[in-house]
Nucleic acid binder design. Structure first.
Ligand code: ZN
Ligand code: ZN
Ligand code: ZN
Ligand code: ZN
Lengths: 127, 127
DNA sequence: ATGATTTTGCTAATCGTTCGCAAATTAGGG
DNA sequence: CCCTAATTTGCGAACGATTAGCAAAATCAT
């Protein structure tokens, strides 16, 4: 049967991601877990991240060096405001998309069906 | 002195990018040039893309397989509407950002200083 | 043309990510 | 509990896109 096991490594990785609300690379997650006496293999980190990604529990982002980074977030549609100082990620809704959709249709004849956006700046704490 | 040479490979790569208004990977550019009897090395493609990127003449994007892709576009601030069918990229302006900036500040205390966005759908021709 | 400078083309190295497989864990009866 | 089947882990090797090194070729000003 096609079940899904609940294991120690998966719990640790998931817990870490939920605690650290910022984009982390697989290597960073691996290093952080290793510091807290949790021996998880790097490949397990990658596999778990892939799993969480398909379950929409983490979102992936390629950073400026080309490395993939991951953050725990809601499975529903939203966007991320990323603090340049501390890395904190905040989820923000997007209502203003209707105006863009209209703009695209009238000016370009483009039928919008999806979009992605990211915000950068300083969070309340770092400002 | 620190001059910049105008060479055959660079012209070919630039010309190709200006003709194909869609995101292409280095390997695709290499293959396309090779088909049209232009022997350019893959590393030259990479180097030229890096050059054009710093000159803001192309913008880079990581596709769904993790590969970097590049498209020729304006050096001024804008966003891209990408056709899911033919790949055509259209440049679109963003005026509605003030509303997002306000929303972020009042609801999250977030000081916005930059943003990125992409639109996906069908272009006028493919609709 | 000449010579200094930049660019190219190969190839080899790099490095994040994925794969393969045997050993270890898990879940679920009996 | 104990057994077994199914899944997951850990390790190392393999992979693939990108970068680096360096001698040879191309460019440009004189
Ligand atoms: Zn912050
Ligand atoms: Zn949205
Ligand atoms: Zn199209
Ligand atoms: Zn904008």
């Amino acid at each position: 049967m096609r079940t899904e096991y609940s294991t120690r490594p998966r719990e640790q990785i998931t817990a870490l991601l939920r605690k650290e609300r910022r984009y982390l690379s697989a290597a960073e997650i691996y290093a952080l877990l290793r510091k807290s006496r949790s021996k998880v293999a790097l490949s397990t980190v990658y596999r778990t991240l892939g799993l969480l990604e398909t379950k929409r529990e983490v979102s992936q982002r390629v950073d400026e060096h080309g490395e993939s980074t991951y953050v725990s977030c809601a499975p529903t549609h939203h966007h991320h405001a990323i603090c340049r100082k501390c890395g904190k990620v905040e989820e923000v809704a997007c209502e203003a998309m209707e105006s863009f959709a209209g703009e695209l249709r009238t000016h370009h004849g483009f039928e919008l069906d999806d979009h992605a956006m990211e915000f950068f700046g300083r969070c309340a704490a770092c400002k």
